[in-house]
Write a protein that binds this DNA or RNA. Structure first.
Length: 260
DNA sequence: AGTCCCCTGGAG
DNA sequence: CTCCAGGGGACT
Protein backbone atom coordinates (compact mmCIF):
# COMPACT_ATOMS: atom_id res chain seq x y z
CA UNK A 1 0.00 0.00 0.00
CA UNK A 2 2.57 2.52 0.83
CA UNK A 3 4.07 5.04 -1.50
CA UNK A 4 6.57 7.67 -0.45
CA UNK A 5 4.20 9.70 1.76
CA UNK A 6 3.03 6.65 3.70
CA UNK A 7 6.58 5.38 4.20
CA UNK A 8 7.72 8.85 5.22
CA UNK A 9 4.89 9.00 7.75
CA UNK A 10 5.77 5.55 9.09
CA UNK A 11 9.41 6.55 9.58
CA UNK A 12 8.43 9.87 11.11
CA UNK A 13 6.29 8.09 13.69
CA UNK A 14 8.91 5.45 14.51
CA UNK A 15 12.07 7.54 14.50
CA UNK A 16 11.66 9.09 17.99
CA UNK A 17 11.15 5.63 19.52
CA UNK A 18 13.83 3.79 17.56
CA UNK A 19 16.76 6.14 17.06
CA UNK A 20 19.08 5.94 20.02
CA UNK A 21 17.30 2.88 21.39
CA UNK A 22 19.05 -0.39 22.10
CA UNK A 23 17.96 -3.13 19.70
CA UNK A 24 17.79 -6.23 21.88
CA UNK A 25 16.30 -8.82 19.55
CA UNK A 26 15.06 -9.27 16.00
CA UNK A 27 12.90 -12.21 15.03
CA UNK A 28 10.52 -13.56 12.45
CA UNK A 29 8.11 -16.43 12.07
CA UNK A 30 8.22 -16.25 8.28
CA UNK A 31 10.69 -18.57 6.51
CA UNK A 32 10.98 -16.09 3.66
CA UNK A 33 12.45 -13.50 6.01
CA UNK A 34 14.41 -15.69 8.42
CA UNK A 35 17.64 -15.74 6.44
CA UNK A 36 17.83 -11.95 6.60
CA UNK A 37 16.50 -11.40 10.10
CA UNK A 38 18.83 -14.05 11.59
CA UNK A 39 21.79 -11.95 10.51
CA UNK A 40 20.80 -9.03 12.70
CA UNK A 41 23.43 -8.53 15.39
CA UNK A 42 22.10 -7.71 18.84
CA UNK A 43 22.41 -5.99 21.13
CA UNK A 44 23.20 -2.88 19.13
CA UNK A 45 22.22 0.75 19.29
CA UNK A 46 20.16 2.22 16.47
CA UNK A 47 21.94 5.18 14.95
CA UNK A 48 19.53 6.01 12.15
CA UNK A 49 16.05 5.27 10.84
CA UNK A 50 15.43 6.74 7.42
CA UNK A 51 13.54 6.46 4.16
CA UNK A 52 14.79 6.11 0.61
CA UNK A 53 12.07 5.88 -2.04
CA UNK A 54 9.59 3.42 -0.56
CA UNK A 55 12.25 1.66 1.54
CA UNK A 56 12.86 1.97 5.26
CA UNK A 57 16.49 1.76 6.36
CA UNK A 58 17.78 1.20 9.88
CA UNK A 59 21.47 1.45 10.78
CA UNK A 60 22.99 0.20 14.02
CA UNK A 61 26.34 0.77 15.66
CA UNK A 62 27.19 -2.81 14.72
CA UNK A 63 27.77 -1.29 11.26
CA UNK A 64 24.73 -3.10 9.98
CA UNK A 65 21.77 -2.01 7.86
CA UNK A 66 18.29 -3.48 7.83
CA UNK A 67 16.34 -2.58 4.69
CA UNK A 68 12.59 -3.09 4.80
CA UNK A 69 10.32 -2.75 1.80
CA UNK A 70 6.58 -2.89 2.62
CA UNK A 71 5.53 -3.59 -0.98
CA UNK A 72 1.74 -3.72 -1.35
CA UNK A 73 0.42 -4.49 2.10
CA UNK A 74 3.29 -4.14 4.54
CA UNK A 75 3.39 -1.67 7.39
CA UNK A 76 5.67 -1.04 10.36
CA UNK A 77 3.84 -0.43 13.61
CA UNK A 78 4.99 0.50 17.08
CA UNK A 79 3.62 -1.67 19.85
CA UNK A 80 0.97 -4.32 19.39
CA UNK A 81 -0.48 -5.23 16.02
CA UNK A 82 -4.20 -4.89 15.52
CA UNK A 83 -6.46 -7.88 15.95
CA UNK A 84 -6.21 -10.26 13.01
CA UNK A 85 -3.19 -8.51 11.56
CA UNK A 86 -0.47 -10.78 10.25
CA UNK A 87 2.82 -10.11 12.02
CA UNK A 88 5.78 -11.23 9.94
CA UNK A 89 8.67 -9.85 11.91
CA UNK A 90 9.40 -8.18 15.21
CA UNK A 91 12.18 -5.97 16.55
CA UNK A 92 12.46 -5.56 20.33
CA UNK A 93 14.10 -2.37 21.54
CA UNK A 94 14.86 -1.04 25.00
CA UNK A 95 11.98 1.38 24.36
CA UNK A 96 9.38 -1.10 23.08
CA UNK A 97 8.59 -3.24 20.04
CA UNK A 98 8.28 -2.62 16.32
CA UNK A 99 6.39 -5.04 14.12
CA UNK A 100 6.13 -5.62 10.40
CA UNK A 101 2.52 -6.47 9.63
CA UNK A 102 1.85 -7.62 6.10
CA UNK A 103 -1.35 -9.25 4.99
CA UNK A 104 -0.11 -10.40 1.60
CA UNK A 105 3.41 -11.40 2.65
CA UNK A 106 5.01 -9.50 -0.18
CA UNK A 107 7.18 -7.26 1.99
CA UNK A 108 10.93 -7.86 1.94
CA UNK A 109 13.64 -7.52 4.56
CA UNK A 110 17.35 -7.46 3.79
CA UNK A 111 20.33 -7.10 6.09
CA UNK A 112 23.71 -5.82 4.94
CA UNK A 113 27.00 -5.07 6.65
CA UNK A 114 29.22 -2.07 6.10
CA UNK A 115 28.25 0.94 4.05
CA UNK A 116 24.73 1.92 3.06
CA UNK A 117 23.36 -0.66 0.60
CA UNK A 118 22.78 0.34 -3.01
CA UNK A 119 19.09 0.39 -3.85
CA UNK A 120 19.27 1.30 -7.56
CA UNK A 121 16.68 4.05 -7.25
CA UNK A 122 16.27 7.30 -9.11
CA UNK A 123 16.55 10.66 -7.32
CA UNK A 124 14.28 11.63 -4.44
CA UNK A 125 11.34 13.72 -5.68
CA UNK A 126 11.41 16.12 -2.71
CA UNK A 127 15.06 17.11 -3.07
CA UNK A 128 14.87 19.28 -6.16
CA UNK A 129 13.66 18.47 -9.66
CA UNK A 130 15.92 20.57 -11.85
CA UNK A 131 17.04 17.39 -13.57
CA UNK A 132 13.52 16.26 -14.43
CA UNK A 133 12.76 18.10 -17.69
CA UNK A 134 15.85 16.66 -19.36
CA UNK A 135 15.10 13.19 -18.05
CA UNK A 136 11.53 13.31 -19.37
CA UNK A 137 12.78 14.50 -22.74
CA UNK A 138 14.92 11.39 -23.05
CA UNK A 139 12.09 8.87 -22.65
CA UNK A 140 9.27 7.71 -24.88
CA UNK A 141 7.48 5.99 -21.99
CA UNK A 142 3.95 7.18 -21.19
CA UNK A 143 4.39 9.87 -18.57
CA UNK A 144 2.37 8.06 -15.89
CA UNK A 145 4.38 4.88 -16.36
CA UNK A 146 7.56 6.99 -16.24
CA UNK A 147 6.56 8.55 -12.91
CA UNK A 148 6.11 5.09 -11.43
CA UNK A 149 9.49 3.83 -12.61
CA UNK A 150 11.58 3.72 -9.42
CA UNK A 151 14.81 3.77 -11.41
CA UNK A 152 13.83 7.13 -12.87
CA UNK A 153 12.36 8.81 -9.79
CA UNK A 154 11.97 7.19 -6.38
CA UNK A 155 8.80 6.83 -4.33
CA UNK A 156 5.89 7.61 -6.65
CA UNK A 157 3.36 4.78 -6.91
CA UNK A 158 0.08 4.12 -8.63
CA UNK A 159 -2.12 6.49 -6.64
CA UNK A 160 0.07 9.55 -6.72
CA UNK A 161 1.13 9.01 -10.35
CA UNK A 162 -2.52 9.36 -11.40
CA UNK A 163 -3.07 12.30 -9.06
CA UNK A 164 0.04 14.12 -10.30
CA UNK A 165 -1.02 13.73 -13.94
CA UNK A 166 -4.50 14.98 -13.14
CA UNK A 167 -3.33 18.06 -11.27
CA UNK A 168 -0.80 18.80 -13.98
CA UNK A 169 -3.60 18.39 -16.57
CA UNK A 170 -1.50 15.92 -18.55
CA UNK A 171 -2.88 12.85 -20.32
CA UNK A 172 -1.20 9.89 -18.56
CA UNK A 173 -0.68 8.16 -21.92
CA UNK A 174 1.40 10.95 -23.40
CA UNK A 175 5.02 9.98 -24.12
CA UNK A 176 7.25 11.78 -21.63
CA UNK A 177 9.37 13.26 -24.42
CA UNK A 178 6.36 14.80 -26.14
CA UNK A 179 5.14 16.94 -23.25
CA UNK A 180 4.90 20.66 -23.94
CA UNK A 181 7.07 22.99 -21.89
CA UNK A 182 4.23 24.21 -19.69
CA UNK A 183 3.13 20.64 -19.05
CA UNK A 184 6.62 19.78 -17.87
CA UNK A 185 6.53 22.81 -15.59
CA UNK A 186 3.24 21.65 -14.10
CA UNK A 187 4.55 18.11 -13.57
CA UNK A 188 7.59 19.55 -11.80
CA UNK A 189 5.32 21.65 -9.58
CA UNK A 190 2.75 18.97 -8.83
CA UNK A 191 5.10 16.16 -7.83
CA UNK A 192 6.20 17.85 -4.59
CA UNK A 193 2.81 19.52 -4.13
CA UNK A 194 0.96 16.18 -4.16
CA UNK A 195 3.53 14.25 -2.14
CA UNK A 196 3.98 16.91 0.52
CA UNK A 197 0.27 17.35 0.92
CA UNK A 198 -0.08 13.60 1.38
CA UNK A 199 2.68 13.59 4.00
CA UNK A 200 0.91 16.40 5.80
CA UNK A 201 -2.22 14.27 5.85
CA UNK A 202 -0.13 11.33 7.12
CA UNK A 203 -0.54 9.34 3.95
CA UNK A 204 -3.50 8.04 2.06
CA UNK A 205 -6.10 5.58 3.21
CA UNK A 206 -8.58 3.84 1.00
CA UNK A 207 -11.72 2.35 2.41
CA UNK A 208 -10.50 -1.21 1.72
CA UNK A 209 -8.17 -1.13 4.67
CA UNK A 210 -4.76 0.16 3.79
CA UNK A 211 -2.72 2.55 5.81
CA UNK A 212 -4.09 3.75 9.14
CA UNK A 213 -2.79 6.60 11.18
CA UNK A 214 -1.31 6.17 14.64
CA UNK A 215 -4.71 5.84 16.28
CA UNK A 216 -6.38 4.01 13.42
CA UNK A 217 -7.86 7.15 11.97
CA UNK A 218 -8.44 7.66 8.28
CA UNK A 219 -5.73 9.61 6.50
CA UNK A 220 -7.06 12.99 5.53
CA UNK A 221 -5.60 12.87 2.04
CA UNK A 222 -7.98 10.04 1.15
CA UNK A 223 -10.80 12.53 0.98
CA UNK A 224 -8.86 14.62 -1.49
CA UNK A 225 -7.99 12.05 -4.12
CA UNK A 226 -9.21 13.66 -7.32
CA UNK A 227 -9.23 10.70 -9.70
CA UNK A 228 -7.72 7.56 -8.17
CA UNK A 229 -10.37 4.89 -7.64
CA UNK A 230 -13.11 7.19 -8.95
CA UNK A 231 -13.95 5.57 -12.29
CA UNK A 232 -17.32 6.84 -13.48
CA UNK A 233 -17.52 9.54 -10.83
CA UNK A 234 -17.66 13.17 -11.94
CA UNK A 235 -14.37 15.02 -12.26
CA UNK A 236 -14.11 17.60 -9.50
CA UNK A 237 -12.95 20.20 -12.01
CA UNK A 238 -15.33 19.73 -14.96
CA UNK A 239 -17.91 17.09 -14.04
CA UNK A 240 -17.05 14.66 -16.81
CA UNK A 241 -16.88 10.99 -15.82
CA UNK A 242 -13.44 9.85 -14.66
CA UNK A 243 -12.09 7.01 -16.78
CA UNK A 244 -9.95 4.02 -15.94
CA UNK A 245 -7.42 2.41 -18.24
CA UNK A 246 -4.59 -0.07 -17.79
CA UNK A 247 -0.94 0.84 -18.30
CA UNK A 248 1.77 -1.72 -17.64
CA UNK A 249 -0.78 -3.84 -15.88
CA UNK A 250 -1.79 -1.11 -13.43
CA UNK A 251 -4.98 0.94 -13.31
CA UNK A 252 -4.73 4.57 -14.35
CA UNK A 253 -7.50 7.05 -13.56
CA UNK A 254 -7.87 10.31 -15.48
CA UNK A 255 -10.32 12.91 -16.70
CA UNK A 256 -10.60 12.77 -20.51
CA UNK A 257 -11.68 16.40 -20.59
CA UNK A 258 -9.11 18.01 -18.30
CA UNK A 259 -6.13 15.91 -19.32
CA UNK A 260 -4.71 16.23 -22.80
C1' DA B 1 6.09 -1.96 -22.70
C1' DG B 2 3.61 -6.17 -21.87
C1' DT B 3 3.20 -10.65 -19.25
C1' DC B 4 3.82 -13.53 -15.56
C1' DC B 5 5.03 -14.16 -10.96
C1' DC B 6 5.33 -13.57 -5.80
C1' DC B 7 0.92 -13.66 -1.93
C1' DT B 8 -3.71 -13.13 0.36
C1' DG B 9 -8.26 -11.43 0.69
C1' DG B 10 -12.34 -8.78 -0.63
C1' DA B 11 -15.91 -7.63 -4.00
C1' DG B 12 -19.05 -8.94 -7.51
C1' DC C 1 -15.91 -18.59 -9.94
C1' DT C 2 -13.32 -14.07 -11.85
C1' DC C 3 -11.30 -9.72 -11.22
C1' DC C 4 -9.08 -6.50 -8.46
C1' DA C 5 -5.52 -4.47 -5.06
C1' DG C 6 -1.15 1.21 -3.11
C1' DG C 7 4.96 -3.02 -5.56
C1' DG C 8 8.42 -4.72 -8.24
C1' DG C 9 11.71 -8.28 -10.28
C1' DA C 10 12.46 -11.42 -14.16
C1' DC C 11 11.35 -12.60 -18.29
C1' DT C 12 10.28 -11.36 -23.43
Amino acid sequence: MPELPEVETMVWLLRPRVEGALLEMAGTTDPALSEAVQQVRTPATVELLSRRGKYVLMRTDAAQWTVIHPRMSGRLVWGQAGRGERVRSLWRFSTGEMRLVDQRRLATVEVADGTEPELSLGPEPLEGLDWLPNALARSRMPVKVWLMDQHKIAGIGNIYASEICFRARVDPRRPACKLEGDEVVRIVEEIPAVLEKAIGGQGTTLSDGGYRGPRGELGRFALQLAVYGREGAPCAACGMAVRRLVQSGRSTFYCPNCQH
